[in-house]
Design a protein around this nucleic acid. Sequence first.
DNA 1: CGTATTTTTGAGCGATATCAACGGAAGTGG
DNA 2: CCACTTCCGTTGATATCGCTCAAAAATACG
Lengths: 244, 244
Amino acid sequence: MSLIKKTNPRVISIKDFSSCSYCSVRRLCLPVSVDKEEIDIIDEFVEDRPHLKKSEYLFHAGDKFRSLYAIKSGAVKTFGSTRDGREQITGFHFAGELIGLDAIGNNMHNCNAVALEKTVICTMPYQNIEGISTQIPSIQHEITRLMSKEIRNDEEMLMAMGSMRAEQRVACFLFNLHRRLSTNSSDALSIRLPMTREEIGNYLGLSLETVSRRMSSLQEDGIINVENRLITLRDIEALQHLCN
Amino acid sequence: MSLIKKTNPRVISIKDFSSCSYCSVRRLCLPVSVDKEEIDIIDEFVEDRPHLKKSEYLFHAGDKFRSLYAIKSGAVKTFGSTRDGREQITGFHFAGELIGLDAIGNNMHNCNAVALEKTVICTMPYQNIEGISTQIPSIQHEITRLMSKEIRNDEEMLMAMGSMRAEQRVACFLFNLHRRLSTNSSDALSIRLPMTREEIGNYLGLSLETVSRRMSSLQEDGIINVENRLITLRDIEALQHLCN
DNA sequence: CGTATTTTTGAGCGATATCAACGGAAGTGG
DNA sequence: CCACTTCCGTTGATATCGCTCAAAAATACG
């Protein structure tokens, strides 16, 4: 491939810009601990990169598990449905994050995944991943690491839900977003929320009104600025302190 | 090993009764999808089987991650500490269940694990597991499956915490125990709780008084019987219905 | 048998949910 | 680009669930 690149850079550059090598979130994604040549192998097993519009489903609960999905850009929510029809959001996911790991266990997706905004997805068929793992052992290790991290995240969230009051939950939620959206090069001091207050409340176990009220009080305390969906962090120390 | 067994059965039988082959929870544990000869290999990498008394630690948060632990008998709680010193329980674990999976990611235990009663543990050094995975590929797959299952569990719990009222949470908690403690051969209609009301409340995000009250009301409704720590399920249908 | 721990039950209070109304933003179709 | 509609966010008033405090009963433990 790199050979072709030299001889015909114009055509190839189109593929390149969607490839892992040129992906802006590569350092957060599966090929994190993989060297240059190996990325091409990973690239090959990325099946396609569908563009989702807002509210489009990536997968439904009950779907057969075929692939893991990496978010190239945009944002996704995952949620289950209670029998009485209401949805319960279990996570928000951003660029560089992998979803579908919870489906490996029983070969079936256990939640729904919906784009919160225009989103680009890298589809990675799990069979290919398992095959590739023999060639690149670090991939298996990386998957294990990511799963372990997800368990940790969920359990952190459980701890929060068990012991925190509304204001703490909201603060914790925002601080968590801050951490996840910050990169080596930039601190995410302004966050444009891709989800509604209702979705935040659903996720945090609060009513949408309480989310709104607690955001207002965090603003009054000079910790954040709220301007519709644009949240500006004014005192990160204080925010972090609320999270313990 | 099976050779020695024939020549000197008396000595070996002692080892056997603690070995995986003879373990009563084998079908729930790591060697679930492994055939006879392979079990001996697994047996070999089980380092030791410490007996924990009530309140003894299996590991502390911050400990270097060395091993996964399977519970042979007894019960364990895992919990983290908030900065203000209180503990937040993230899970209860019973015979046949594996703990420590969340530590693989950052090579460090992220929570504490304490025996709730007399408990026997199988210590499985992770290095050995990784090594053995090349010999028994199904082991790696099994670990992945178990991690995925834990993610699913945690997310189910998150859904519960986000949307359920106190009575539902308690009902859900009991039904979950029922499922986990039931085996092919027996339905766990009577459950002897190894944890206090306070620990249940901590786990469910409720006060110990509320746990007690909601158990009483479930009893009044004829759904369960409460006799100190012995819970008898009288109407499992109704219990399950509350969980939704 | 006595002490400590755990559990139950009651009373009052506080945090958060629910209900309601309004204003603003965003999307839609002309 | 504007008018219309729908969705979203804020704020206020009231209701309710679950917490805290308190005390006593039941159980476990040495």
